[in-house]
């Protein structure tokens, strides 16, 4: 009798021990892979950021992280745009502008953009760090015809769907409204942040 009542218990024990062993070994192996890849992922991220910073502010020779902690920027249409980082662009000892990394939400998730802003608050250049927009549609925001429109514009850029853009307007991409307006939101948010940084710097 005793052995009969004992059997299911030991069975459950055996099941759970085997399962835990498998889970434990798997977790260990994954941890090992993570130990190899984590520094590489971090290194690539930093390298990519450094390259993008250089690309949007070619005249600067060093970038100083401001340690921005102002939180998200709310855009004109009420959406949150996260600010991932702000750098002062320096040429020698002179500050020539700043770079802001923003990640507005596009069609396929966050689009990470670095925006270079000149000392007088105008867009110097933009660079997409990463995105997962639909290939062939949302990815059109990588075309120079689109992002080129932003160069030289100052805070409060408006997007239009058709017609000829006025002084501070850009044309969104038809069929990729969501991706292109996300880009627009990102640039505007970056300009807002840059304004506060540049303003503070002059005083």
């Amino acid at each position: 009798m005793a052995s009969l009542s004992k059997k299911p218990k030991s069975d459950i024990l055996r099941l759970s021990v085997t399962l835990c062993l498998i889970a434990g070994i798997t977790a260990l192996l994954v941890a090992a892979v993570n130990a190899v890849t984590a520094p590489e992922i971090a290194r690539r991220g930093e390298l990519k950021t450094a390259q993008s910073l250089k690309a949007v502010m070619p005249e600067a020779d060093s970038f100083e992280d401001c340690g921005y902690s102002g939180g998200d920027i709310t855009s004109a249409d009420g959406k949150q745009v996260p600010i991932d980082g702000v750098w002062l662009a320096k040429s020698g000892n002179e500050t020539v502008g700043c770079c802001v990394k923003v990640s507005p939400k596009g069609y396929g998730g966050a689009i990470e953009i670095i925006v270079g802003v000149t000392g007088d608050g105008k867009v110097a250049a933009t660079q997409i760090v990463s995105m997962s927009e639909t290939s062939g549609i949302g990815t059109k925001i990588q075309n120079p015809e689109f992002y080129g429109q932003f160069v030289g514009k100052s805070a409060g850029i408006a997007g239009i769907k058709g017609g000829t853009p006025l002084k501070n307007e850009v044309q969104t991409i038809s069929g990729a409204t969501k991706s292109s307006s996300a880009f627009l939101r990102g640039v505007n948010a970056a300009l807002t942040v840059a304004e506060s940084i540049n303003g503070g710097e002059q005083k």
Binding site: A23, T26, A27, V30, A31, N34, A38
Partner: peptide, 10 residues
């Protein structure tokens, strides 16, 4: 955090 997928599916 890297064990997310395993933990969630379990």
């Amino acid at each position: 955090e890297y064990l997310r997928t395993i933990a969630f599916i379990l």
